[in-house]
């Protein structure tokens, strides 16, 4: 029950900080970190996949409405929500009956970093390609993916490492 409340709070805080703060930080003109994806990354590892998909859809939908980019964030977030369980299987070995919340502690530092990097890069790649598909500035995409992903990854890892203490 407590964790549900915590997750709702996390959802709200992430959405607000994304649309009110981070969307306004167009660092160097094109670097725009998308930290809201941390919500999907922080869901319990063994949460039913259909439920993760629904949550991903809702999160993307809310971000899209605030950004006036309907569809783009839904697509990227749902993709991450779907592939999340495969990535977890790939990098970690969770014991039967355990349902840990992904973190440095539960996954191990290396595995967690790999997990975050893989999913954030996946998310940003999908996001920027869909965005370019509808807004057409193709030359910038690889640079945007690289820069924005690294900023997002740094932010998420920084937040997570503070949280552990």
């Amino acid at each position: 029950m407590l964790s549900i409340l915590q997750n709702i709070l996390l959802f709200i805080v992430l959405v607000l900080s994304q649309v009110l703060v981070l969307n306004n930080i167009q660092f160097l003109g094109f670097i725009n970190p998308y930290i809201y994806i941390l919500f999907i990354l922080s869901l319990p590892a063994k949460l039913p996949r259909w439920f993760v998909l629904v949550l991903g859809f809702c999160l993307g939908f809310v971000i899209d409405i605030f950004s006036n980019t309907l569809g783009i964030h839904i697509f990227a977030t749902v993709l991450v929500a779907y592939l999340r369980s495969f990535v977890i299987q790939l990098f970690t070995s969770i014991d039967e009956g355990n349902n840990p919340i992904p973190s440095f502690h539960s996954f191990g530092v290396g595995a967690y970093i790999k997990y975050v990097v893989a999913l954030v890069v996946l998310h940003h790649t999908a996001l920027f390609f869909i965005e370019a598909f509808s807004f057409s500035h193709l030359g910038l995409i690889p640079l945007k993916i690289l820069m924005s992903s690294s900023i997002t990854i740094l932010l998420i890892l920084g937040l997570k490492s503070m949280h552990r203490k």
Partner: peptide, 14 residues
């Protein structure tokens, strides 16, 4: 479900 959602998202984008 995943494919359905992605199709909906693409529909939104288009």
């Amino acid at each position: 479900l995943f494919l359905f959602m992605e199709v909906v998202a693409m529909g939104f984008v288009v």
